[in-house]
Design a protein around this nucleic acid. Structure first.
Lengths: 253, 253
DNA sequence: ACCTGAACACCGTTCAAGT
DNA sequence: ACCTGAACACCGTTCAAGT
């Protein structure tokens, strides 16, 4: 390598041999994940292949393996990046329920912004920094609500699963990330018709409660799920009659 | 290659024409799903390809397309079959909570018996008969518990999602469907060490509550999630102070 | 020493050419 | 008329051969 080649890129550094192209930014995990997220957003999860990502970076698929461990690792990095983009705010003990809803709403929004990303399941081992920060915030909000620490610890998982399920549900309905209000209404109507049309002999309850089964927007059902989980934990904290016994918290090992 | 090389290895069965073989049962969707489930159980989800399934049925991949709409459709059929195998029992208003736990436990067991099947997400349109029957049973149990009909209707979805999430969690931990108690203990220990080892500055709550975060077996957490959801719905039924308002049930259309 | 073109061992799906 | 071998258009991943 000559001194000239090592010089910073300001002024006109002509690289005659690999000429013309705008200086092709060096590869990095970050650049790869950026490119992959762009493809995910515009073309969907199936379009995110090692080849398409590489091509969009002006290189070959083989070159990606220096920076990511493979397609699996790339998807995990993408999910981590999306998770890291979620705004967190310090828990407030007076507004905690509102904060919980708005935090989970932001998580949901971040996921559906990249249709298909919610289908990525992390192997439990490498808990990423972004997910830990999200969990820390979630745990803080639940504790600010004076929910029992053991319930709060386990509740984080449940709430995350609720959000992931809602996002996945959204993904299968609008695989391209688009979707109108009319689509939603049509779908709800169709679902309702399916339920009322069922044989009352084989499905007495579903057909009798067809309206309730089909009721609500995705958002309403999402909010309901969160409230049910929170109310459930609060009910246990106040030791309601109906509630089953609390699990014993014990140190593993 | 000589003719001898082509002959099967037990004794000398020469494949004269198409006969000799045990009459090759005719293809059907049922037979294809059976074969696919067998491969799923023994080799995992990734091994379920149109080619491997076809080969195990002594035919070519192309022949399967007469009976199933493609790999997607095959997977849906497999999930439906697994769902259909779950034993249902009429709801009892005195034992409803026990029934709920045991029903969901059976759903969970059916799913983890076929590692990977829980990762299959149905496109919402074709609600299968087996899933409708399961939902009918679930709805009946919740109504037997005198849970508000609107809550019960939406609760079915939440509970199904909880089970699916638990089964998926189990799948990523033991991709082959096997797994010992020691594995579980090791994993819990590792998780605990990860949590206590975190910076108390960046993760004050997680590191302070490491024991609770890592506590419990998968089964304990599963039971907890169910109880929380049920307790939440009960709390709303009795109009607890902390509970947020119930959604209004309205007919779509 | 580093990068990558080309190869390998697969996929799901289609369809023309056989029976 | 039906079935299916072979082909098509892809995959993820590896590695020898180039620079």
């Amino acid at each position: 390598m000559s001194v000239t080649d090592d010089a910073p890129q300001n002024i006109t550094v002509r690289k005659r041999s690999t000429r013309d192209r705008p200086a092709k930014a060096p590869l990095s995990e970050e650049a790869i994940i950026d490119a992959a997220l762009a493809i995910l957003k515009s073309e969907g999860l199936d379009a995110v292949t090692m080849r398409t990502v590489a091509t969009s970076l002006d290189t070959g698929a083989a070159s990606l393996y220096v920076y990511v461990s493979g397609r699996r690792g790339l998807l995990e990095g993408m999910l981590d990046r999306v998770t890291a983009s979620i705004r967190l705010e310090p828990p407030s003990s007076t507004r905690w329920r509102l904060q919980l809803h708005s935090l989970l709403q932001r998580v949901y929004q971040a996921l559906v912004d990249y249709p298909g990303i919610a289908a990525v399941t992390l192997p439990n081992s490498p808990v990423t920094n972004a997910i830990l920060l999200l969990t820390e915030n979630l745990l803080g909000i639940l504790l600010a609500g004076e929910i029992d620490p053991q319930d709060a610890a386990w509740g984080c998982d449940i709430l995350v699963q609720v959000v992931m399920a809602a996002a996945r549900e959204d993904d299968v309905r609008r695989p391209d990330g688009r979707g109108t209000e009319m689509d939603r209404q049509n779908r709800a109507d169709e679902l309702y018709r399916t339920f009322v049309g069922l044989s009352p002999l084989m499905f007495p309850l579903i057909s009798a409660h067809a309206a309730q089964m089909a009721a609500g927007t995705g958002d309403e059902r999402f909010r309901f799920a969160i409230d049910v989980v929170v109310d459930g934990m609060l009910a246990r904290a106040s030791g309601g009659e109906g509630a089953s016994s609390r699990p014993t918290s014990h140190r593993p090992g």
